[in-house]
Write a protein that binds this DNA or RNA. Structure first.
Length: 236
DNA sequence: TGGGGCGCAGCGCG
DNA sequence: GCGCGCTGCGCCCC
């Protein structure tokens, strides 16, 4: 499935005019992001007006976790996460990290629509979406790897962004603490309003990713990361 | 013009 | 997947 995509290079300036609904495979404009063990693809998925509309719906309809459910256990301490989070997905699934377990809320129309677009352009199915809302440039996410034990083996993760553009970094796991010339340098991206980033196997095995603070960013960003979570225990 | 101060950002650590 | 502290750098102002 990793070879599903038809990749075409084009002038990004013509993108909004050429794409009617953002899901035409033949119109796809993918930017390939490659390094040692890093395999990602990036594109604009929604035009500005489409993305504006989706962001409004997300801001209106998404209900984020509050109180203890929004805390995280890291290095022996509980912290409030520096952003808002919630998960939606198929009934019976769950996803855990750093002491926080996400039981998904049922799908709502706006998330179903975005999921269908993502599935159409990637050729992969997703049963779960983790939503992070960064109210401004002070909200952030530290660098981490996603726990692939809870994901379908070798399945990609699709990250869709709405609102303020933010920098995003991949850093090779071996590059912390014991940097040597052989360790790959960090890979920086800018995730734009209406964009899709597909993180493919084996990226998550050797690279951490994070969203650093950016003081100059004043607007909110809502990010949807679609995953295929293992559901072997699902059922009545 | 340049030096110092300040704020932001990168990175290591627990 | 956090927060803190150290450090370096770039920008701004006098």
């Amino acid at each position: 499935m990793d070879k599903f995509l038809i990749k075409k290079k084009r002038n990004p300036l013509g993108l909004e005019e050429e794409e009617k609904n953002g899901v035409e495979e033949k119109e796809a404009i993918w930017k390939e992001i490659r390094a040692e063990g890093l395999h990602c693809d990036y594109r604009i998925l929604f035009s500005k007006s489409e993305a504006d509309g989706i962001l409004l719906e997300l801001e209106r309809d998404i209900e984020y976790l509050q109180g203890d459910l929004a805390k995280l256990y890291v290095f022996g301490k509980w912290h409030n996460v520096p952003r808002k989070q919630v998960a939606y997905g198929d009934a019976g699934l769950s996803y855990t990290y750093s002491g926080a377990t996400f039981s998904p809320k049922p799908w709502i129309p706006v998330l179903q629509r975005v999921r269908e677009c993502v599935q159409a352009v990637t050729g992969h199915s997703f049963n779960f979406v983790l939503i992070n809302r960064y109210k401004d440039g002070r909200d952030r996410m530290g660098e981490h790897r996603d726990d692939e034990r809870e994901l379908e083996p070798r399945s990609p993760i699709a990250s869709v962004s709405f609102g303020a553009g933010r920098d995003f970094v991949f850093r090779h796991c071996g590059s912390k603490g014991h940097s040597t010339p052989s360790h790959p340098t960090p890979v920086w991206l800018h995730l734009e309003h209406g964009s899709l980033l597909v993180m493919r196997f084996p990226t998550n095995q050797h690279w951490r990713h994070g969203l650093p603070a950016r003081r100059g960013v004043t607007g909110p960003r809502v990010n949807l990361t679609f995953r295929d979570v293992r559901g072997s225990h699902v059922g009545p």
